[in-house]
Design a protein around this nucleic acid. Structure first.
Length: 483
RNA sequence: CGGGAUGUAGCGCAGUUGGUAGCGCGCUUGCUUUGGGAGCAAGAUGUCGCAGGUUCAAAUCCUGUCAUUCCGACCA
């Protein structure tokens, strides 16, 4: 029966509803939007051209922002000798269970085994120790784009893979103040990127000692809330003080002729961002990409393309938009228009332009927004303006929608019972005061299964007592469950 | 790392008491179609995840292993 075959066809391409099974929905999208493929090694994924193009756009934007702040790009080797890795105790202990080791070169066993970098602090430090002699050598503001390896036990595409792509900035400064300023500056670069480019509202704040990077004096973070109410750490910026400088002997002669230790920062974001984009903006039809990083910003779909003048008009439209600087794809393949509509919705293309004989007769085309499927009929001559506005409106709408989700899922608690109840019944952030004791942090994990996500900057106190122990509280903490 | 599920064509799956593999979609060719996943006709595509074992015979039974996935633990 026609009805049945129609239904079967749908099942082939349908994705799981997000409110039914968010985890399955996520993996469906990652595969069906053609972002990745699995490889034969657990936790190591193939990033497909469409997925990689998103990463490339992220890199392009961030790299430009980095350069505006004086960042220089370098590349460090991927191997770290065991002895070098062990020079700084705290991070080694943090990473030890998940480093991968190279023990052989060809058939010969290495005299000293090499670890595949889980992060490159030690390499940067070793190098900085060699090149920094004078206060005139400071600051050093280096960044690298590379992949790192952490042998995770449980893995998920983009969110937790054994090898992932990231950028890691490592900087050296003359004073503690300068290092602190750089730490905050880079956190703000990330926050702006998330909010203005990706349409993802973030909370800027500090990690508790329990959650901070081992060996850091302070870890700052931008935290985003996903559609399902779980938190995702978007990016981190660490102030290392001069702890690493002491371990690696990074000293310089200051203008007062005194030998001093340099102050270090480090900051990074990874391909995990892509997972964040999916889980923030995606819907039951697939991915929804913010225009800034969408590999295709506008897809032009000719309708009844065999009719005279349709392909020509569609091509011309696409060329006009390309010339105006948009990333445009014209799809005149033989698939039916309906198939193409679904396909590009799955891939999250922000705007779709339909153009067929009916439109041609009126000198118009149809622009459809991915997020709300709103259609507008636009004169062909005005299409550049309409696309500019459409992309901007979509970006703003994505932000608003994500912000509303966060607001709807942000709760406050002033005592333990309240907090536990909220945690049991909802998924999201719980704002609550904290005394600063590790014990209370552990207890909340135990009784409410939440961890501290961050202590927002400039947060107002909502009570003067710790939500857990009732003693005087120091900080407002956002608690939640994290990816 | 513990518990559950899965692995058969590019994708989604069926395959009975063991007897040598099938369906839908997709793909190729042709014609008709085209404004929300088109129709008809003719085709092509498989080391049944991998390695052992039992058997005259294994996709099917047994053991191991790898991968995916879900839940938990762990971890950033």
């Amino acid at each position: 029966m026609a009805g049945n075959s129609q239904k079967d066809k749908k099942l082939v391409t349908e994705i799981t509803a997000m409110d039914e099974d968010f985890a399955k929905w996520y993996t469906d999208i990652v595969k069906k939007a053609d972002l990745i493929d699995y490889s034969s090694v657990k936790g190591c994924m193939i990033i497909r051209p469409y997925g990689y193009a998103i990463w490339e756009n992220i890199q392009k934007i961030l790299d430009a922002k980095f350069k505006e702040t004086g960042v220089e790009k370098v590349y460090m080797p991927m191997f770290i000798p065991e002895s070098l890795l062990k020079k700084e105790k705290d991070p080694v202990e943090g990473f030890a269970p998940e480093v991968a080791w190279v023990t052989h070169g060809g058939n010969e066993k290495l005299a000293e085994r090499l670890c595949v970098r889980p992060t490159s602090e030690t390499l940067f430090c070793e190098h900085y120790a060699n090149i920094i002699k004078s206060y005139r050598d400071l600051p050093k503001v280096y960044n690298q784009w590379c992949s790192v390896v952490r042998w995770e036990k449980t893995t998920r595409p983009f969110l937790r893979s054994r090898e992932f792509l990231w950028q890691e900035g490592h900087t050296m400064h003359r004073t503690a103040e300068e290092a602190e300023a750089r730490t905050v500056q880079m956190l703000n670069v990330y926050a702006d990127f998330f909010e203005k480019e990706l349409g993802m509202p973030v909370i800027r704040g500090q990690k508790t000692d329990k959650e901070k990077f081992a060996g850091a004096e302070a870890t700052y973070t931008v935290e985003a809330l996903m559609h399902d109410g779980k938190a995702l750490q978007g990016g981190t910026s660490h102030n290392f003080g001069n702890g690493f400088a002491k371990a690696f002997d990074i000293q310089f002669l200051d203008s007062d002729n005194q030998l001093k230790y340099a102050y270090e920062t480090s900051w990074g974001v990874s391909t995990r961002i892509i997972g964040g984009i999916i889980m923030t903006h995606g819907d039951d039809s697939g991915l929804v990409l913010p225009p800034s990083v969408a590999p295709i910003q506008v897809v032009v779909i000719p309708v009844q393309q065999h009719k005279e003048g349709v392909i020509e008009a569609a091509s011309k439209l696409a060329d006009t938009l390309k010339a105006a600087g948009f990333r445009v794809k014209m799809d005149d393949s033989e698939q039916s228009p309906g198939w193409k509509f679904s396909e590009y919705e799955m891939k999250g293309v922000p705007l779709r332009i339909e153009i067929g004989p009916r439109d041609l007769a009126e000198g118009k085309c149809v622009i459809v927004r991915r997020d709300n499927r709103e259609k507008s009929f636009v004169a062909i001559n005005d299409v550049t303006t309409a696309v500019t506005e459409g992309l901007e409106n979509l970006r703003a709408a994505l932000y608003e929608k994500a912000l509303k989700n966060r607001e709807d899922r942000t709760f406050s608690a002033t005592n333990l019972e309240e907090l536990v109840n909220i945690a049991n019944e909802n998924s999201g952030y719980i704002r609550a005061m904290w005394c600063g004791d590790l014990e209370c942090e552990m207890k909340l994990k135990e009784v409410a299964d939440v961890t501290s996500r961050c202590m927002p900057f400039d947060a107002e106190a909502i009570s003067d007592k710790c939500v857990c122990c009732g003693r005087d509280a120091k900080k407002l903490v956002y608690w939640g469950k994290a990816y």
